[in-house]
Write a protein that binds this DNA or RNA. Sequence first.
RNA 1: GCGGCAUUAGUCCAGCCUGGCAGGACGUCAGCUUCCCAAGCUGAAGGUCGCGGGUUCGAAUCCCGCAUGCCGCACCA
Length: 485
Amino acid sequence: MSYDEIYKLAIEHGFFSPSCEIYSDFQAGFWEYGPLGVALKNNYVNLWRRELVRRDGMVEIDGTQIMSKNVFVASGHLESFADPIVVCTKCGTTTRADRMISERAGISLPEGLPEQEYDALIAKHNLKCTNCKGDYGRVKRFNMMFRVGIGPKDDDAYLRPETCQSIFVDAPRLFKTMRLKLPIGFAQFGKSFRNEIAPRQSLVRLREFYQCEIEVFFNLKKADDQAKFQDVKDVKLPIQRADGTFIEVTAEESVSQKIVPNQLVAYYLALLKEFYDKTGIDTKRARFRELSPEDRAFYARSAFDFEVQTSLGWMELVACNYRSDYDMGRHGKVSNHDVTVPDDNEKVLPHIFEISMGVDRSIYCVIEHAYAKENDREVLRIKPQLAPIVAGIFPLVNKDGLPEKAQHIYHSLKRDFPVFYDESGSIGRRYRRQDEVGTPICITVDYDTMKDGTVTLRDRDAMSQQRIKIEEIQNHLSSLVRLQD
RNA sequence: GCGGCAUUAGUCCAGCCUGGCAGGACGUCAGCUUCCCAAGCUGAAGGUCGCGGGUUCGAAUCCCGCAUGCCGCACCA
């Protein structure tokens, strides 16, 4: 199950494909979801809503993708979401200034120096372009946010680089109008945008991508007082610690052994793991990787990445960041709004724990982990709840009224379930076609159907068959796709 | 962004070195066959040979530039 095989399957069957591909000026890092991809993504997001949003009693919003400049002044992205780069005046080669200087001058540099300091260091060490020995220009910051010009005056605004900023700016109103109390999770599914220098591997590193983000607002004083924690205290958490050691402990042990900072964090890590179990991604090949201070995002005070093993190596699907009171503190200051929240007669500046999920990458992993190549067939063993098509419906042969009967069944089901009718090729060929796109069940109308009103149900994984009555199909499909604990 | 390799039908690839009708397999479609697990028979459709420029009587083929993809570096959901 290599990346190439998954990629081929995906573009051949309409899971995903490059954006704007018929034009030669199409840009890297933009990908479309086709019909099956959309279905899979919708199912995935609905599972997230069930297992995280509703399970924990969160509230979901849908914010705009374009946000005003001051949002990012406050968030720090205008300042910090940028790499210092320097361009050679002669050959135009672009280099990362901080890395280039520390490598060639043999010194280690602190993060976030002003640009002039880099210029001074380049002059002091007499550094010239490695490519052509030309002089470097002034050090600039390359910001990974996409700027957009609003209206005829082209006013500055930005495409959000993370969906959570919408949550932060909406939270003050939501607390007042939705009768919310700490702790509360805000959830959002939507697009974010980052002007990556090197997008790669289709859904894995995009410039325009989906996130399912959860921002849990809480009172720091009560972070170890989580009633809900009882539900998940025995969930096993595989943790790769910042020092490189690996340990598998229960959520309860992770707190008592001070591996994670508090109950609240452990609770959500456990919830997240239980969610991924239900996506069909193999969580035996997953871990929470604790990030060292150097590896963390600029806003994070402690961080665990949820990573999964794939053919491309360990892939980071979710960033779990403890963002402290940084976000609401900054937005309060810059907007000059009171963003504190009443909690037990005290005004609290909420602390935030975030579960920031890369949806596209997760979709890729769902497909890769479900894919199996057997002797003479390819099969996606995707969970029925996530399957783009729930059932294929076929006539065994194309005569004697079988197609009409099968079509009748198809029409009776199509508004309640994503079902697919096919009468082309041999029956075995049709089963294999559905195997390749992960359809869990195929329903075949044969001569017995005409006599006794039963159909064959053919199972994708076991390739076994059973007969059920036509009237039972509806219930059978319902129980197949029902999300269960 | 740098370095290496690549880009020809929906997919995988041959053709390129040595310029001269754009091909194969699989897939798809139509028909035949078929009472349950692909690749049986007959036929068909499907191509700006990544884009742009140059050399040439003539370019998929040679040269230059760009884009995209893969791998490595770096960065990240």
